[in-house]
């Protein structure tokens, strides 16, 4: 439902709540001019001066060098890697589940106006539900388990995929399917060779928005429930007043987010290879 600050909060994305008219999936990567690297200067200056004056600040703001050493300690004690692994697994499972379910549901509501109408209020409501509110309910029903984490992530990441698939289905040209039938393609072949590849850009556009959401929600569940993962470590460092460790882990979360964005962009470039430019 929300990008929670990571990833493209782009105006062209057709996932805006209720923006049913804005359904043209913006094809292709939003190349937009990348900002020049010299723009990093303020951040560097900021961090450097933080490093210099940190000792005179309160203990709330340990110098960046401490963040690094805290992280090193964490990884030496064998905590960091398993946590990172747990986060990645939850993120991936949630994203995959969201992709599969979102595509199937998107196909269902996209292909039939009646199904769409029938499910619309329910889906609309479910979508408006802040994922944070879902967490206590999920722990209530599923316990403090890995399954619970994946379910929460899926329920938050599914929307952009569902909506993009739906608008993708609606934009499919029936001629494509008539052509396939006229060429004697069987039902299964039509799905594999026509429907799926035709929908792939739409589905992927959804995944592109869903991936950062899935990561953020993974961290959210972990912070709230403290079931494994980097998020749980972040919450623990708060409990133990480990400021430096907290900052270090936030950095790790940021790195994850950058990595996810880069991966998604790469995947998207692959998916959109050989497609007509927008």
């Amino acid at each position: 439902m929300t990008t929670l600050g990571v990833g493209p909060a782009d105006a062209a994305s057709p996932v805006e709540p209720g923006e049913r008219r804005r359904t043209t999936p913006a094809r292709g990567t939003r190349t937009g001019s990348l900002p020049p690297l010299r723009g990093l200067l303020p951040l560097v200056v900021f961090l450097a001066s933080w490093q210099l004056v940190a000792s005179r600040l309160s203990p709330f703001f340990p110098p960046p060098s401490d963040w690094a050493s805290a992280l090193l300690d964490l990884s030496r004690s064998g905590v960091l890697l398993p946590a990172a692994f747990a986060t990645v697994i939850t993120f991936l499972l949630g994203l995959v589940a969201a992709s599969v379910l979102g595509t199937v549901l998107g196909l269902a509501v996209g292909a039939s106006a009646r199904t769409d109408r029938a499910l619309q209020p329910t889906l609309e409501y479910a979508r408006a539900m802040p994922p944070a509110a879902v967490v206590p309910i999920a722990t209530l029903l599923l316990g403090f388990t890995g399954t619970m984490k994946v379910v929460v992530v899926t329920s938050a990441a599914i929307w952009s995929i569902l909506l993009n698939t739906r608008s993708g289905v609606r934009q499919l040209n029936p001629v494509m399917f008539e052509m396939a039938r006229s060429l004697q393609l069987g039902r299964f072949e039509r799905v594999r060779k026509v429907t799926f590849p035709a929908l792939l850009p739409s589905i992927f556009l959804g995944v592109r928005v869903a991936a950062p959401v899935a990561l953020v929600i993974t961290l959210l569940v972990e912070i709230l429930t403290q079931v494994d993962g980097v998020g749980a470590l972040i919450a623990q460092s708060q409990r133990n007043y480990e400021f430096a460790q907290g900052y270090g882990l936030i950095l790790v979360a940021g790195l994850f987010a950058l990595l996810v964005n880069a991966l998604v962009s790469m995947l998207q470039a692959r998916v959109m290879r050989h497609r007509p430019p927008a």
Partner: peptide, 27 residues
């Protein structure tokens, strides 16, 4: 302004605000 700071903002933006919650609580 854009040239000399946008990259910093983009990098900061990558940090999920959610991960700041525990820290904000501490502070």
């Amino acid at each position: 302004a854009w040239r000399w700071s946008m990259a910093s903002f983009e990098l900061l933006r990558a940090v999920p605000p959610i991960s700041l919650v525990p820290l904000a609580l501490l502070v």
